Computed example of a mutant assay.
Amino acid sequence: MNKITIQTPDDWHLHLRDGAMLQETVPASARCFNRAIIMPNLVPPVTNADMLNNYRERILAALPDGQSFEPLMTLYLTNQTTAADIKAAKAAGAVACKLYPAGATTNSDAAVKTLTALYPVFETMAAEGLLLLIHGEVTDHEIDIFDREKIFIERYLQDIVSRFPQLKVVFEHITTADAAEFVLAGPDNLAATITPQHLLLNRNDLLVGGVKPHNYCLPVLKRNTHQKALRSAVQSGSKKFFLGTDSAPHEKSKKESACGCAGCYSAWSAIELYAQVFDDLGALDKLEAFASHNGPDFYGLPRNSGQITLVKESWTLPEQLTLADGSLMVPFFAGQQVNWKLAAE
């Protein structure tokens, strides 16, 4: 197959950042995604309805004329979040709340330190119809970074999913066979997003031959057996898995440093890289459901009415990008060849 047309997809996990970065990230995602779940881990994080509304306005202000894009907003949970905050966020148009364990990833220091203390908040979310989006890793220093997702499932996620059957839970950017198996065996209120980097790469691509800072993300890349499990999950066609890029931009200087930031900026090539994975797996017939159907169906939102077309055509990603303020950024897969390309309208 050299050409495929699918319903317009959405990105169910996206970091746009803020300020000058929006001039790059918003058009890059809007080129192929009609909607996106916007992560709230700014500085300061989006913890109330006013901040949520203001952030949405800044995103839309960065959208070029003629492009269509709907940011689906989320609230950043902390141990100070109240039922009133949840209701106000819902009234402001939020569709979900994001749970970061404190210290788990970029700009998460202000996040949740005592997870069980949020159970009353989860009850309010379920009543209001807001989804719970979870970065599923423990952060205990003594637990190996490659085991943190597995331990989170055992310590917290099993209880949350069973205790709140009316609360829809998205296990974000899963990285392990343990997570894929847990989601597949779980109840209907549980689903998961999978990123392009975790389908394409494993920890060898991060560490062999020298550290590759632009392949560094959190949750960190795992061994190839886990990568294979994720590829099998999307190949299965299960409705429990859907597209979430976790596209997470950082300036080049902040990635290539003594303490490099976590995140892969995949927006430039995300839908093309997913197509490449599905093609490699002989599962292009499963791409549309993964990219365009499973996400809105789980969120209870309508599917998009438009279409995009991808053609099998090789192209090479740029080595770096120049932002509006003159700083540089390196896209995921920089300088590498991609075998599928979004067709011009």
Rank of each mutant, 00 (worst) to 15 (best):
V43R: 09
V43I: 14
P45N: 14
P45H: 13
V46H: 10
V46M: 14
T47V: 13
T47P: 09
N48G: 12
A49Q: 02
A49P: 08
D50W: 12
M51R: 10
M51C: 06
L52M: 12
N54D: 15
Y55K: 06
E57V: 13
I59S: 00
L60F: 10
L60D: 07
L60K: 11
A61Q: 13
A61F: 14
A62E: 02
L63N: 00
L63G: 00
L63S: 00
D65K: 06
Q67T: 09
Q67W: 01
Q67F: 10
S68N: 15
E70D: 09
E70A: 07
P71W: 05
P71D: 03
L72V: 05
M73K: 01
L75N: 09
L75E: 12
L75V: 14
Y76L: 04
Y76K: 02
T78S: 03
N79Q: 01
Q80I: 09
T81F: 00
T82F: 01
T82D: 05
A83W: 07
A83L: 12
A84E: 15
D85K: 03
D85C: 01
K87P: 13
A88V: 12
A88Y: 09
A89G: 15
K90R: 08
A91F: 09
A91I: 09
A92G: 05
G93N: 01
A94H: 01
V95C: 13
A96V: 11
C97L: 08
K98E: 05
L99G: 08
L99P: 08
L99I: 07
Y100V: 04
P101Q: 02
A104K: 04
T106P: 10
S108I: 14
S108D: 11
S108V: 14
D109L: 14
D109A: 14
A110N: 07
A110V: 08
A111H: 00
V112W: 03
L115Y: 04
L115K: 02
L118K: 05
L118Y: 06
Y119N: 13
P120R: 01
P120Y: 00
P120F: 03
V121D: 00
F122T: 05
F122I: 02
E123H: 09
E123P: 07
M125Q: 06
A126W: 11
A127Y: 09
A127E: 15
A127W: 08
E128G: 13
E128T: 15
E128P: 12
E128N: 14
G129W: 10
L130D: 10
L130V: 14
L131V: 10
L131D: 06
L131Q: 11
L132E: 08
L133D: 03
E137P: 08
E137M: 04
V138S: 02
H141L: 13
H141P: 13
H141W: 12
H141V: 15
E142T: 14
D144N: 11
I145M: 11
I145F: 09
D147S: 14
R148N: 10
I151T: 03
F152L: 03
F152Y: 06
